[in-house]
């Protein structure tokens, strides 16, 4: 467990994003990403460009969103970026998902940009989240195995 945490923290530093791996939870990016796909993120210093698939957070909303940037404007004076996003599978842009009256997301809302993906693997966490009883079953089966297994050294 400790080594898993260390790997996670090392990855966080390496790709400079607070969560280097995310699991896709919705169908809004179909057919590029499906529910259960595992996405690998990175977060360079370069400005966000249109076409980048960004993971971003809306203030006071818990679940981050993975959508494609369709408008990117960079302010000359401050370097601040104003971004508009849209899910590939959604008919309209994301302004309806932002906070009321919010027209843009900004550079600091972006947690990371998608660099690569592996399909299906994230299904495990989705199943564990959707059916919490599975966690109990999993823990119990591990416990029973430990109890039943004999040390045959």
């Amino acid at each position: 467990m400790a080594s898993a945490l260390m790997v996670w923290k090392a990855m966080t530093l390496a790709v400079r994003s607070e969560s280097p791996i995310v699991v896709v939870l919705s169908e809004s990016m179909e057919p590029a990403f499906a529910r259960g796909d595992l996405l690998f993120l990175y977060e360079p210093d370069t400005p966000v460009a249109v076409g980048d698939i960004c993971v971003f957070k809306i203030k006071d909303k818990e679940v981050p969103i993975v959508h494609r940037v369709t408008e990117a404007r960079t302010e000359t004076k401050t370097g601040q970026q104003f971004l508009l996003t849209k899910g590939d599978n959604n008919p309209v842009d994301d302004r309806g998902l932002y906070n009321p009256g919010q027209m843009w997301i900004k550079r600091e809302d972006v947690v990371g940009r998608v660099r690569g993906m592996i399909p299906y693997i994230g299904m495990i966490t989705i199943l564990l989240n959707d059916y919490p009883q599975l966690k109990v079953v999993l823990l119990m089966s591990v416990g029973i195995m430990v109890l039943l297994s004999k040390d045959e050294q």
Binding site: P31, P47, R68, E71, R73, T74, T76, K77
Partner: peptide, 23 residues
Amino acid sequence: TKQLHVYAVVAFETPQHHSNEIV
């Protein structure tokens, strides 16, 4: 290759915003 996401981009500069990119 699963798919290509193809898009046309208009880019322009204004005094306030040195980079504007719109799909």
